[in-house]
């Protein structure tokens, strides 16, 4: 079984986000970028399934600026076999919407015919939590989002999902889409020899036009603001003082 793993290059999760003063977005010029952390978990899960002999090949795909190749090289260094880069933007500030990404992935799936797509549950930049579900819809496949455990057997994926009330276990018929939550696994670090090896793994370069997909955004950005700041309050000296403050405020 082949597994397709979409990965996104995003601002590194340790970088402090700065909103541009003209309200046009978040400043991504000269900031450290990395693979979306949820996507790292997806790559790890796919590679583990290959190591267990359940998957035969792991193909990583990324859609964005040409530099998204970095995220693909990371996926290859972690153990993916080959990669597809779809260059859909020239400027790092251009975010390709989940609907357009799903349409491109739909076409990639048509060519690659994977038995399973494992994706991150959301990207930490736009926080949409949508691409996996949208791809499942376009393909007419079942979906299991926010996975914290995954078992493959007899043409189905048994997935434990993190839901509001706790955990839910579902079975989806393969082929299917699974999106990863944080606790599915702990992604490995790519070793230096593997990073070197990854440079030689095959990487195919494509464009949205090759797939006949229009990536024009449906949402027009009006503005991007800093969130309202919360001022620091006061330090109290004791539990008694804290309780009396809370009673004054009418909440205890």
């Amino acid at each position: 079984m082949k597994i397709l793993v979409p990965v996104k290059r995003v601002i590194d999760y340790n970088v402090k986000v700065r909103v541009k003063s003209d309200g046009s977005g978040v400043d991504l010029a000269n900031v450290k970028m990395s693979m979306n952390p949820f996507d790292e978990i997806a790559v790890e899960e796919a590679v583990r399934l290959k190591e267990k002999g359940i998957a035969t090949e792991v193909v990583a795909v990324s859609i964005g600026v040409a530099k998204s190749e970095d995220a693909l090289r990371t996926a290859l260094a972690m153990g993916a076999d080959r990669a597809i880069l779809i260059t859909a933007a020239d400027d790092v500030h251009t975010d390709i919407e989940p609907l357009a990404v799903a349409k491109l992935l739909d076409k990639v799936v048509e060519v690659e015919e994977p038995g399973l797509v494992i994706a991150g549950k959301q990207a930490i930049d736009n926080d949409m939590n949508a691409t996996g579900q949208m791809l499942a819809a376009l393909l007419g496949w079942g979906q299991a989002t926010s996975a914290s455990a995954l078992e493959i057997a007899d043409g189905t994926a048994r997935v434990t999902r993190e839901v509001d009330g706790g955990l839910q276990v579902v079975e989806v018929k393969l082929p299917a889409i699974v999106t990863c939550d944080l606790r599915l696994n702990e992604p490995r670090y790519a070793s230096l020899p593997n990073i070197m090896k990854a440079k030689k793994k095959p990487l195919e370069k494509m464009t949205p036009a090759d797939y006949g997909v229009d990536v024009t955004p449906r949402l027009e950005l009006v503005k991007t603001d800093e969130p309202a700041a919360r001022a620091a309050g006061q330090i109290v000296g004791s539990v008694d003082e804290l309780i009396s403050k809370l009673k004054e405020a009418g909440v205890a």
């Binding site: 609907l99 949409m128 791809l135 926010s146 839901v163």
Partner: peptide, 20 residues
């Protein structure tokens, strides 16, 4: 979590972008 699972799926079938 239930709406977050279903709504993007719905939006894609309506060919619209979800707003989460």
């Amino acid at each position: 979590t239930s709406a977050k699972a279903a709504f993007p799926r719905l939006a894609a079938l309506l060919d619209v972008m979800v707003i989460s």
